[in-house]
Design a protein around this nucleic acid. Structure first.
Length: 262
DNA sequence: CGGAGCCCCTGTAAGC
DNA sequence: TGCTTACAGGGGCTCC
């Protein structure tokens, strides 16, 4: 489940490999990952030079000498700089030195080309690691449940289900708490939790729950630090009560009913 | 505006 | 044992 720390890790692990490279050709095989005319899409990339690789939210944004290549990993997407194509490889970029493979069994990811800045990226909210506390607090003035808001990419860009649960637990805030009713102290706890957890997770190379790996095929280690995600029924690390799971915004939500208050 | 529900997809695991 | 079903969740969509 690539969220901000995983995508950041992928970007860091792929940047040196891609910097300055020329795309000789591209080939796509999925009507889901690359909707529309796949041959025409591939033609857009042929001959282009890669100028930079950045992350914005959960998007990988690759600036070309003309246009932009934007990749979203969805649930099971992987970018790999080595290895061979198999039945789940839906994108192959042949470079003037080496290659870039896009692997995605569930095909929830997307590979897109845009002339200018990608439209999907323009709609994203602020970066969680760049936003200041005052702006964060101002954006919390919404009637939505805090968990739903954290998952909303127009609120903040990059949090997903795992880190939303971990941040709320660290801040002692119940997933169903109404965002606008969080006082300044609790809002600041959440703000610090988001910064701390994302930073720590990036340092550990992200969370490898099932099959997430970086571009070199290496796993992350932050899953060892999860306090509530995937721990339903296990004792809370603070109070010992069993970690509970419920559905919020159609997502499995892990929390401690004792430690997290509305 | 907010939320429920459905959809895209496939590997894995649980249930019968 | 083997088949069927549920689940995992990022994001987009419609409807209320």
């Amino acid at each position: 489940m690539p969220e901000l720390p995983e995508v950041e890790t992928v970007v860091r692990s792929v940047a040196a490999h891609l910097a300055g490279r020329k795309i000789l050709n591209a080939r796509f095989t999925s009507r889901f990952v690359t909707p529309g005319n796949r041959v025409r899409l591939a033609e857009r990339f042929a001959g282009r030079r890669i100028e930079s690789v950045h992350r914005r939210g959960k998007f990988i944004v690759i600036a070309l000498d003309r246009g932009t290549l934007t990749i979203h990993l969805g649930m099971t997407g992987k970018l790999l700089v080595e290895g061979e194509a198999d039945q789940h490889t839906h994108g192959v970029f042949t470079l003037d030195r080496g290659l870039l493979l896009y692997h995605d069994p569930r095909q929830f990811g997307r590979i897109e080309f845009s002339e200018g800045p990608p439209a999907r990226v323009a709609k994203l909210g602020p970066e969680p690691l760049e936003i200041g506390f005052e702006e964060f607090r101002a954006r919390l003035r919404r009637k939505a449940r805090i968990k739903a808001l954290l998952l909303d990419q127009t609120f903040l860009a990059g949090l997903g289900n795992i880190y939303a649960d971990e941040c709320l637990f660290a801040a002692g805030i119940h997933p169903l708490a109404v965002a606008s009713r969080l006082n300044a102290a609790r809002a600041e706890k959440l703000y610090r939790a988001i910064r701390g957890i994302l930073t720590h997770a990036i340092q550990l190379g992200g969370s490898s729950i099932s099959d997430y790996v970086n571009a070199q095929g290496e796993r992350g280690w932050f899953q060892m630090e999860h306090r509530v995600y995937g721990r339903e029924g296990e004792p809370c690390v603070h109070c010992g009560k069993p970690v509970r799971k419920m559905l919020v915004a159609q997502r499995g939500t892990h929390y401690c009913a004792q430690c997290q208050r509305r």
